[in-house]
Simulated scan of single mutants.
Amino acid sequence: MHEQPLQRFFKSRREQPVFQWERFQQREVLVIDHPLCQAVFSRQGAQLLHFQPRGQKPWLWCAAKWPQVGAIRGGVPVCWPWYGRHPSENAWPSHGWARLIDWKLLESSSDEEGVSLHWRLQLCDWQVDLQARLGESMDLRLSTEHQDSEPCQLSHALHAYWRIGDVGEIALSGLEGAEGYDQLNRQACRQEGELRVEGGCQRVFQHEGELHLKDHAWQRELCIDTGDSADTVVWHPGHRPLLGVSWSEVMGFVCVEAASGGTDSLCLAPGERAHLSLQARASA
């Protein structure tokens, strides 16, 4: 089982500042070392790549090898202003522009309960803000403001890669009875009982709120809350190869995502805002 590559920043026993910029695999990363948690963000995409409350195993998975250019696979990519393939422009990148562009860090602060960060991306007539609160739990909130004079279409997702002991030994509860669409089989589906993803899974559920990721190999349970997003997406490639990712790495993650606008794109009026959130905590 591979070690999360960004844990290398926390092996030193000497005292470190709470926030410190570093270079890693040709990217600028912000290393966060707080008494309650450790975390790493990439400036590219404002992407939370590593999060680990003290005394626990990592919550997020990240690929050991990153491409020289392009998207980093792992953590919580911000898929915006579309996720998946663009509905009309096949040559445009999957999951949008936001995860490929450097964001501006407007604010970072710490207190006894954790750290707070505010990232912003200003692109054409859009303003996108990512607020993060990290401590014993994880709270990410994405906000988009449409500043054009004409209506526009939007879809977005917080595409979280959750670190697990073994994908063959996990179960997701909380989706029981949820209606959705199975993109592998290209048909509607309804979840009966706990969801297991061994062998591959790409399902979009009409679901909002909490679900529980039961990780039997690591003997832990995470409560994941997708808020009032329209969809909860569960994805794992199964036996299909991922470019630049070894099979042993693939066994160590499952994606549970908050998404909105994927089935029917959101239409934002001038000045209107759209919101998306993803929260997680360790179940007692």
Rank of each mutant, 00 (worst) to 15 (best):
M251H: 12
R240T: 13
I164A: 05
D228R: 14
A157H: 09
I32E: 00
E113D: 14
S110T: 08
L130R: 09
E28P: 00
G165S: 09
S173E: 15
S246T: 15
D264P: 09
W235P: 01
S260F: 02
D33L: 12
R27L: 07
I72R: 06
C37T: 12
I32W: 02
A91R: 11
Q16Y: 01
E210K: 13
R85E: 14
E107D: 15
E194T: 12
L49H: 04
L6F: 02
L117E: 01
R141P: 01
H2S: 15
D264S: 13
P53E: 08
E22L: 11
W80F: 05
W247Y: 15
P81R: 07
V204S: 01
P67D: 06
A178H: 10
L123R: 13
Q56G: 04
A284Q: 11
L48F: 01
S12Y: 07
L100D: 05
A188C: 11
L105R: 01
L134K: 04
P77A: 04
W80G: 04
I170K: 06
S108D: 12
V69R: 15
L154E: 02
A63Q: 09
G193S: 07
T144E: 09
Q183T: 10
V18L: 08
L195D: 03
G135E: 03
L195Q: 03
C37K: 05
G70F: 04
Q16V: 01
L121K: 05
H236A: 01
E198T: 08
